[in-house]
Design a protein around this nucleic acid. Structure first.
Lengths: 207, 207
DNA sequence: CGCGAACCTGAGCAAGCGCTTAGGGGACGC
DNA sequence: GCGTCCCCTAAGCGCTTGCTCAGGTTCGCG
């Protein structure tokens, strides 16, 4: 369907999902969950989008919730990788923070279908699965906080409330998945650049 | 249940919902929708929380979707009122923007149960109802954009992309409803003050 | 050709869904 | 006492849900 989804520039989207039929089902589930939400999506709808019968789904996944967990896990791994890569780069804190925001926002805009499921369907996970995902989110928070803390230490940034500002930065980026529209006038890169600028203003020294 | 919900300082929460039984049902629906989401909530659950039989719901509301629409409509009216009141006040653009963000964020934190339903269950509405709500959101956007535009005109603000920054400010505030936790360490007022400061930095002149 | 493994389907089950209907029971005027 | 109105419940209807299971098709390999 969506060519922007299929031909992702920086990586093959779901290459880690190995039986091809399982991948087709997972991609169909991402689309359906993003459109209607997890609870409003039926297993018949997922199977139908993948061109299979409802029973085929249960050959590759034990339950509908396992499908959601696989999607959420892969998405969170990817998001965490983006942030930690940006945090580990060389350069000033400002350069690294701008890079992290640019990459994180770009991902949320470009792959907003996936990101919507990843960010807004957490409470549909089982307790064990949700605990696993929450731990990944804690690490994402730590990566951003590390950049901001170092900027404060070197005097590049003026941030009275580091945990609060970290939360606000992540919140701002994540919410891109909710409002971004591929038919809109802004490209993912433009939104990333705008947001990187706004975040640098949030942490920069007062005039 | 939650005393913070029941005893709202600035207004009686659902006083506009007039038959008392209808109000009890609506409050129960807000709690249930916020906890599990609209589609995962059953009419039996709503009626049970209100201490009634499932059939009682249909004396006061035609469908489950009508309940969601009433909640969404009242919440959006309240949010719009907050923003327009702040925009119409006297003072500098910076003062008015800070006031708008403080009030808007405070509402999203203090009444995060309601706000979660209002902000994250739009696609469960019927087409007509959603169109009505989208119009209210357009007006909220216009109120914030007006403040920022005036700040740019008077030279108080330096904002290269007014529509984009307006979107980011609203997005930042709305997402408070998603992560705010009443058991957490921050009060709604503290979050409002933090966010007002961050937003002023976003629009302020470069150092 | 025979055989086993991998994959998928048609049919359907038990449970739960939104919503309806027939009727009960208390408060009120007369 | 009696009828009327309003608010509510018990029971359940028709349908959809997540999921199962027996069996069929396709394939590589000897």
């Amino acid at each position: 369907m969506s060519t922007a989804e299929e031909t992702d520039g920086e990586n093959t989207p779901w290459s880690e999902v190995t039986p091809e039929a399982a991948r087709r089902l997972l991609v169909a589930a991402v689309e359906a969950f993003a459109e209607r939400g997890y609870h409003a999506t039926t297993t018949r709808d997922i199977a139908g989008r993948a061109g299979m019968s409802p029973a085929a789904l249960y050959i590759h996944y034990k339950t509908k919730e396992e499908l959601l967990h696989r999607i959420s896990r892969i998405g969170h791994d990817r998001a965490l990788l983006l942030l930690e890569t940006a945090a580990d780069r060389d350069g000033t804190a400002a350069e690294r923070l701008a890079g992290a925001v640019q990459a994180f926002v770009r991902w949320h805009a470009e792959r907003h279908t996936t990101a919507r499921v990843v960010q807004y369907e957490l409470e549909a996970l089982s307790d064990e699965h949700r605990a696993e995902i929450v731990e990944l989110r804690r690490k994402s928070d730590a990566a951003v906080r590390r950049i901001i803390s170092e900027g404060v230490r070197t005097g590049e940034f003026d941030v009275p409330d580091v945990p609060g500002t970290t939360l606000a930065v992540l919140s701002l980026c994540i919410d891109v998945a909710r409002w971004f529209n591929a038919q809109g006038s802004r490209t993912p890169d433009e939104v990333g650049t705008l947001y990187a600028d706004l975040v640098l203003r949030m942490v920069g020294p007062r005039k």
